[in-house]
Design a binder for these strands. Structure first.
Length: 297
DNA sequence: AAGTGAACCTGAAGGC
DNA sequence: TGCCTTCAGGTTCACT
């Protein structure tokens, strides 16, 4: 379930365990996910020490020694879990014996943690839309996955003026413009819908109609920028608690439980004070959009 | 160039 | 019970 807040929650959950850990072994259950794994993937990771983790848009970045970065995108259904987080003197053997191999477990990372514990980090991804890259720190900015990405919705650079400038003259529906990672990087279907509801704007409107004249900020572009930043910040805050179990996994997946205002609420009453509308679902560029036709205009 | 739609893949849920 | 269709949090590519 990975939009930006979910990816950030995964990062926050993994970071304390993997920071400072050394990768003692990597096993692949198949040669590809969405793309083939980079040549020599497992071999190149073995023996590397993980410094820290960061996130860009929906990408997880494991910063390794020798200025390398393990990039992980979770696609639609990717997840990480730990198994066998116990002390052992023989890392490789220990994990191999005890680890459960569930359907769609594709990558196994054996880690020697700074605490002296050993842990096995497992990447699972039923639909295999996720992928992993192994690149150099210097390559990051120019890599095709990152070069075109827009502003982080958590950044204070995201304001009404920027939205107006990005959207001015655009005829694509507002929803499509918000989902376009070249504009705002990390917004997905859920939070695009939620942000438009909070801002009271119709997803079908041409994106350019949000901008003021001459691409200046408008009341609506200001409202939309605030809505995006608020909903993302709130989701990260809420996600932190609800996904923690999922990271500690003992086999059971945690579920991201959230109160959505519109997403997946077709047929329900709009919850905006004073609005009597009913949430409807439409399809835009092949994706579901949920909104209230009464208070989003 | 910008915008739209199909493709990638598996599983869950609902209708009959 | 099973079989069929539709849908799912993302990205990329091919086409108009």
């Amino acid at each position: 379930m990975p939009e930006l807040p979910e990816v950030e929650t995964v990062r926050l959950g993994l970071q304390p365990y993997v920071a400072g850990a050394t990768i003692t072994a990597v096993e692949l259950n198949r040669a590809d996910l969405r793309f083939p794994f980079p040549a020599g993937f497992a071999e190149r990771l073995r023996g590397r020490r993980i410094g820290s983790m960061s996130r860009r848009a929906k990408y997880l970045l494991f910063h390794l020694d020798e200025d390398a970065i393990l990039v992980s995108h979770l696609g639609m259904s990717g997840s990480y879990r730990f198994e066998n987080t116990e002390r052992s003197e023989i890392p490789g053997e220990f994990h191999r014996e005890r680890s459960k191999n569930e359907a769609h477990d594709h990558v196994f990372f054996d880690l020697a943690c700074t605490s002296g514990d050993f842990a096995r980090l497992i990447y699972n991804d039923p639909r295999r839309f996720g992928f992993m890259l192994l690149i150099g720190e210097a390559e990051l900015a120019s890599h095709r996955a990152f070069a075109g990405l827009g502003v982080e919705p958590t950044s204070n650079r995201l304001d009404g003026h920027l939205i107006a400038r990005l959207f001015a003259g655009r005829k694509a529906p507002l929803k499509a413009a918000l989902m376009d990672q070249r504009n705002i990087a990390g917004l997905g279907n859920i939070y695009a819908c939620e942000a438009m509801w909070r801002a009271g704007v119709d997803p079908r409107r041409p994106a350019g109609s949000i901008a003021g004249s001459n691409g200046k900020a408008s009341v609506e572009s200001d409202r939309l920028a605030s809505a995006i930043r608020d909903v993302i910040a709130e989701a990260i805050a809420a996600g932190g608690s609800s996904l923690r179990d999922y990271i500690h996994a003992d086999g059971s997946l945690g579920y991201f439980q959230h109160r959505f205002s519109v997403y997946d609420r077709e047929g329900h009453r709009c919850t905006r004070a004073g609005c009597d509308g009913t949430i409807i679902r439409i399809v835009q560029s092949g994706r579901s959009t949920f909104y209230c036709p009464d208070c989003q205009s």
